[in-house]
């Protein structure tokens, strides 16, 4: 399926887990990383739990490179800002007014642990869960079908919107619209590009509304699904345990900080 997604099709035990089990597992890991004391808990969870899970799901290299790509700008920013502008502290070196501090660098490293944990956890989930099974799961878990519709439709239409934006950019450049140059020139190009995108898609609203109503949306009847999502009694038990765990971590995290 050509949807807006990070899904990496593989055959693995992680892929075949029920999506609900996986999302709860991700939330548990993130809750643990943010709630437990200790500066390096985030890194610990990433290296000793998420990475082995990624191996199991056969997406390790994929996860590593994507996490690296999304985390790098944060890392650069947080390290520069927190070390160079820390205020009072032990200088790493001093050149004129430039004097990064150890304490700032440490704080940045600790922050990065949390960022990498959140990033890699959710990316692992996205990479090993088919978007369409996620949808069916949400419905089965009691999410209203309107919310499910919004999520699944968004994932389907985003790629076409991205393409359409680029086509409009080309169409307007072909009419002599400058899109490169100084800030004023670039800012002036904005409106002629976004208006066709927005107006054109608003025109589709009515057609789409008629289309889904004619398919019996909002009829109030329970839908059946063509795709069966495999689940096991064991996973059902595990999900209850995980849910309890998440709750425990949140309570612990709050109490510990009070």
């Amino acid at each position: 399926m050509n949807a807006f997604s990070m899904y990496a099709a593989r055959e693995s035990g992680l892929h075949s887990l029920h999506p609900l089990t996986k999302i709860l597992m991700t939330l548990l890991l993130v809750a643990a990383g943010l709630a437990l004391p200790g500066n390096w808990t985030g890194y610990f969870i990433v290296v000793f739990i998420i990475f082995p899970l990624a191996f199991w799901g056969r997406v390790f290299l994929n996860l590593l490179s994507t996490t690296w790509k999304v985390s790098l700008p944060f890392a650069i920013s947080v390290i520069l800002i927190q070390s160079f502008f820390w205020g009072e502290g032990t200088p790493i070196f001093e050149i004129g007014v430039l004097s990064p501090k150890w304490e700032g660098a440490m704080f940045a490293a600790v922050s990065m642990g949390k960022i990498i944990l959140v990033m890699s956890g959710f990316l692992l989930f996205s990479m090993t869960t088919r978007p369409d099974t996620l949808m069916i799961t949400l419905k089965q878990a009691g999410v209203p079908s309107s919310i499910a519709y919004i999520i699944v439709t968004t994932l389907q239409i985003v790629p076409s919107f991205q393409r359409k934006a680029l086509t409009i950019l080309d169409a307007q450049r072909s009419r002599g619209l400058e899109t490169e140059g100084n800030l004023y020139v670039r800012a002036r190009a904005f409106i002629p590009i976004i208006l066709p995108l927005v107006l054109g898609s608003l025109m589709e609203v009515e057609e789409r509304a008629i289309a889904i109503e004619s398919r019996g949306f909002n009829s109030g009847k329970k839908e059946t699904s063509l795709i069966e999502i495999p689940d096991t009694p064991l996973q059902k038990v595990i999900r209850r345990v995980i849910l309890f765990g998440i709750f425990a971590f949140i309570v612990f995290g709050v109490l510990w900080r009070l």
């Binding site: 919004i150 991205q162 995108l197 898609s201 609203v205 889904i212």
Partner: peptide, 14 residues
């Protein structure tokens, strides 16, 4: 309901 996914796609595209 139909408008919302379109709006989210607009957010991302813009």
């Amino acid at each position: 309901l139909v408008l919302i996914p379109i709006a989210i796609a607009i957010n991302i595209a813009i």
